[in-house]
């Protein structure tokens, strides 16, 4: 599903080149559940953003679902992204001015899905996540765990093949964190969604089927 080859990412700081990622080669099959670990500044988030097409490497190639991400047209890449990738953030990143329902609905709006279908899809996921009763609340009215639940629901609403999570439990207490991890596991096993999560916690990392350790921009073997 994902093939990264010779991915480098650097910043130019004066005359020095500061490397964030160095020679990343990675193949991920569909249905995988990968935890990316490593100390702060090791390049975890950057790697995740590159996989999620929010960022581009300085060098290297990236194939996603058999398509070369950096040679296809902007519009095609956008379609590829919209239909296949969902993002979950540490800080939830819900839109404060929108209700739970509207937040979850947002990605569908950008895929031009008809109203009736949208309603059915949102209702379905609200039901699955047990948050039907919260659908008209605004993010500030929810606890952190509930907000993250909404964040995940939003990431999954468009039925992506790949879910990317950047420290999804970082702002949560351990009980809430566990619930989220259980949810990830379920999604991965039951729906076959490929998951890549960045985490600091050994415990959470253990939910993944595979762990990748990053140090100073390199994958530790």
């Amino acid at each position: 599903m994902i093939q990264l080859e010779k991915i480098y990412k650097w910043h130019n700081n004066g005359n020095n080149r500061v490397f964030i990622l160095k020679d990343i080669n990675l193949t991920i099959e569909e249905g995988a559940f990968i935890s990316v670990m490593g100390p702060s500044g090791s390049g975890k988030s950057t790697l995740l953003n590159i996989i999620g097409m929010l960022d581009e490497p300085s060098e290297g190639s990236y194939r996603f679902l058999e398509q070369d991400v950096y040679t296809i047209k902007e519009k095609q890449r956008s379609e590829l992204y919209k239909q296949n990738i969902g993002f979950v953030f540490q800080a939830y990143h819900l839109i404060d001015e929108l209700t739970v329902y509207e937040n979850i609905e947002t990605p569908l709006l950008y895929q031009n899905i008809k109203t009736a279908e949208r309603q059915a899809m949102v209702a379905d996921i609200l039901d699955r996540f047990n948050i039907v009763g919260k659908k008209d609340l605004f993010p500030v009215q929810l606890s952190g765990g509930q907000q993250q639940l909404v964040g995940i629901a939003r990431a999954l609403i468009a039925k992506p093949k790949l879910l990317l999570a950047d420290e999804p439990t970082g702002n949560l207490n351990s009980k809430q964190g566990e619930e989220i991890m259980e949810l990830f596991k379920k999604i991965n096993e039951e729906d076959g969604v490929t998951i890549i999560q960045v985490t600091h916690s050994e415990k959470n990392a253990a939910y993944g089927k595979q762990i990748i350790n990053l140090l100073d921009g390199r994958i530790e073997k």
């Binding site: 929010l54 992204y81 990143h93 404060d96 947002t106 990605p107 950008y110």
Partner: peptide, 16 residues
Amino acid sequence: AKEIGIRKVSGAGKGE
């Protein structure tokens, strides 16, 4: 800025 970021991550194009 945050809202704009989220919308872009949710698949919003510049035109939208």
